[in-house]
């Protein structure tokens, strides 16, 4: 409950908190009916999500739903339904986002692109989340030699120029969805490992971790039950940002010709196919770019909201 006084109130709040550390009053200094109030507050915080967060969630929900339902939606096929006669046509009532250089419906291609791009981004980050998270948790919990070695591996991975690394992986192994996903996963592993490690390091200093060990809890039990739940918010928040970065990275790989092959519709490929027409038919690039913009913005924003929500709760702890 750090929020009562903003900015320059911080110092005083800290002072109030200092004295409260010796206190028999809950951390917000004030209530006897704290339990009731607190339970209400957390709910209020949920209910009180800013409007922007709801818009972002709504955008992502529509996008994900559209991506999942793409095969059954009444939209033209993104690859085969080409109408070369109308190539590079601007937006019309029939084709609200216009047609691309091969006369394919851009709206449909964006939805099919979402299906592949979001799959690649989510799969890459989930892989990074699991592997990087495990690495970070272990290296943050075992501070000694294990932590040092895992930390060094993380640092080495982080030091690689990441786009180049992804480029190399895709160039050598082939431009398939799986390989692009793995390339982006490799990039996201050290980032998540790093964040998880930093958070796990500070949480494992807490007395409750020592208390669990003193109860006889084994290492795995301590990591999973005591540390992981506390580290998870930071990991989730970074993972959301990671998905946003992965979406942009996928598009960037396509633009430099190292993305998924053009016969698979991704957002990167949609933009790539439009870039030659950017002067005559900017809509071909504009619409997919705007979709990427809104998606990345929504994910970044949600990451911030998530962190702020948990920060507030953490400071109350």
């Amino acid at each position: 409950m750090r929020d009562p006084l903003p900015d320059h109130g911080e110092e005083l709040i800290h002072l109030m908190h200092d004295s409260e550390a010796r206190s028999d009053v809950p951390a917000d200094s004030v209530t006897q009916q704290f339990a009731a109030v607190s339970a209400g507050t957390v709910k209020a915080k949920r209910k009180g999500l800013p409007l922007g967060a709801w818009i972002a969630i709504g955008w992502m929900a529509i996008l994900i739903l559209a991506a999942i339902l793409a095969p059954v939606l009444p939209i033209p096929d993104p690859i085969n339904d080409a109408n070369p006669l109308k190539a590079a046509q601007g937006p019309t009532l029939d084709h609200i986002f216009g047609l691309d250089g091969n006369g394919r419906d851009v709206f449909s291609r964006i939805i099919w692109g979402a299906r592949n791009s979001l799959f690649i981004a989510f799969a890459a980050v989930i892989t990074g989340f699991l592997i990087g998270g495990a690495l970070g948790l272990i290296s943050g919990y075992f501070k000694g030699r294990i932590g040092g070695v895992l930390g060094a591996i993380t640092d080495i991975l982080l030091a690689f120029p990441q786009l180049v690394l992804a480029l190399a992986v895709v160039s050598f192994l082939g431009r398939t969805v799986f390989n692009v996903t793995m390339a982006l996963a490799i990039v996201s592993i050290p980032i998540l490992a790093r964040i998880t490690r930093a958070s796990a390091l500070s949480w494992s200093e807490r007395d409750f971790v020592t208390a669990a060990r003193a109860q006889g809890a084994g290492h795995i039990r301590t990591m999973l039950r005591e540390i992981l739940p506390n580290v998870l918010p930071a990991m989730l928040s970074i993972a959301l940002l990671g998905i946003a970065v992965a979406i942009v990275a996928e598009a960037s790989l396509s633009l430099v010709g190292a993305g998924v092959k053009p016969d698979v519709t991704t957002w990167g490929n949609v933009i790539f196919s439009g870039q030659a027409y950017i002067r005559d038919a900017p809509s071909m690039v504009l619409f997919p770019s705007m979709v990427i913009f809104f998606t990345v913005y929504a994910l970044n924003y949600l990451g911030d909201v998530l962190r702020a929500t948990f920060d507030v709760r953490e400071s109350a702890l």
Binding site: A21, A27, R206, D207, F208, T210, A211, A212, A214, Q215, G216, G218, R225, E226, P229, N230, E314, L317
Partner: peptide
Amino acid sequence: LRQTRPRLQMIFQDPISSLNPRR
């Protein structure tokens, strides 16, 4: 060593830090 744990317990200084906030 773990087997001895339930017989030997500890209480800490900082009451807030010694309880897992998420449990």
